[in-house]
Simulated scan of single mutants.
Amino acid sequence: MPMSVLVSPATPLDLRSDTVTRPSTAMRQAMALAEVGDDVLDGDPTTAALEAWTAAALGKERALFFPSGSMANQAAIWVHTTPGTEVLCDAESHVYHWEIAGAAALCGVQCRPVRGESAVFRAADLRAHIRTPSIHAPEPSLVCLENTHNGAGGVVTSVEEMRDIQAVAREHALPVHLDGARLWNAATALQRPLAHLAACADSVMVSFSKGLGAPVGACLAGSADIITRAHRVRKRFGGGMRQSGVLAAAALHAAQHHYDRLAEDHASARYLAQVVDGAGRARVVAPDTNIVMIDLPQPRAAAVVARARERGVRLTEWHPARIRAVTHLDAPAGAVAEAAALLRQTLEEVLA
């Protein structure tokens, strides 16, 4: 009896990102039945429940619901910094590369990229990049971490290394903000509670629209003072939402029902990496979580992506010699296995 085909041009598998997931039937039902109010006027009960759950999970006093992680990151930068100072962040971080210079345009601060010898910066790298005080140089005002690190391929920073970075920041009286868009994946990979990772930062952003599979939304968590100030910034940025409980219900459902299955995505990513590594002399960055970066021996990423799409596998051209694949809720293990075989064949053909 022939095996069923899960991946084909007619039934494509989208591995471009874990943001491509669609709300499950149960999630849609939670959204439809959500108790709502006007969150801008006097509060939305479902949004309040999500914020309380997130604050407790991260071990923080309060949390605030945002339309997006980028807005939450920028609100944190606004709260922690003053114009004319600089934010120290990883050289490949999201806040540096993918928030269209929001720190400069919105907050009046510049980013100082920190590059270390490993995939992400360490405590010693941070110390080396903090400027000697000078009337000619901007003062530092904030340290930004990213865990997992998207640009590095979903790399996880350990709790111990995060604590070391936090200690260096404290030596210089600098607050720490954690871009934890995929902190759920980091905690899963490390087998540590979320609160252990969040304790290494003064403010933490978590996204519900990545591996957890919600359609939209993020939370910023921190002290009561930080969140009170962030609430005003969210209003200034246009992030106040009315019956936001419809969206918050999806995020809360995702956190309560999809968090525990993230290890499945990590296992699929490891399998994909194992199958395609070496095909056409391509090399895979061993995945810590659900992101697989494939480095090509020549700048043929566009051709590989196009050929794979013809076969039903959708990928991201990260740069001309690197491809990204991300496993997620809507990519079952069997489909990923078929996609891996198709991608290996594609790499061998295009890179021959």
Rank of each mutant, 00 (worst) to 15 (best):
L178W: 05
P332Y: 08
R170E: 06
K210Q: 04
S4H: 10
E35T: 13
L247G: 10
D277V: 09
E35R: 14
S244C: 14
H177T: 00
V204Y: 04
L272W: 00
D265K: 07
D14H: 08
A214I: 02
Q74C: 08
V285K: 03
P133H: 02
R261N: 02
A75E: 08
L50V: 12
V233D: 00
T21N: 08
Y96L: 03
D265R: 09
S70A: 14
A52F: 01
A76F: 03
H94W: 07
M1R: 15
S209P: 05
L351R: 06
M3K: 15
V276A: 05
I227R: 02
V233H: 08
S17E: 03
P287V: 01
R300V: 15
A173L: 14
E139H: 08
P12S: 11
T47Y: 12
E310F: 11
F66P: 00
A269C: 03
W98V: 03
W53D: 04
A201K: 06
A250M: 14
H231F: 06
P297L: 11
A263R: 09
L315Y: 05
A123Q: 10
A254Q: 06
C200W: 13
R307V: 11
L262N: 02
T19W: 01
R28N: 10
D42F: 14
I291N: 08
G108S: 07
G211W: 02
C144Y: 04
G239T: 07
T11R: 12
N150Q: 13
V156E: 08
A10W: 14
G153Q: 08
A214T: 04
R28W: 10
N147P: 07
T132D: 15
A333Q: 12
G278M: 14
R28L: 13
G222H: 01
L329P: 04
F121V: 07
E161R: 11
V246T: 15
E348T: 05
P332I: 13
A72Q: 06
M241N: 00
T85A: 08
N147W: 07
I227E: 03
Q298A: 15
S134R: 13
P193K: 13
L262R: 02
V176Q: 00
N150R: 12
V176D: 04
R131V: 03
L33C: 05
H266N: 00
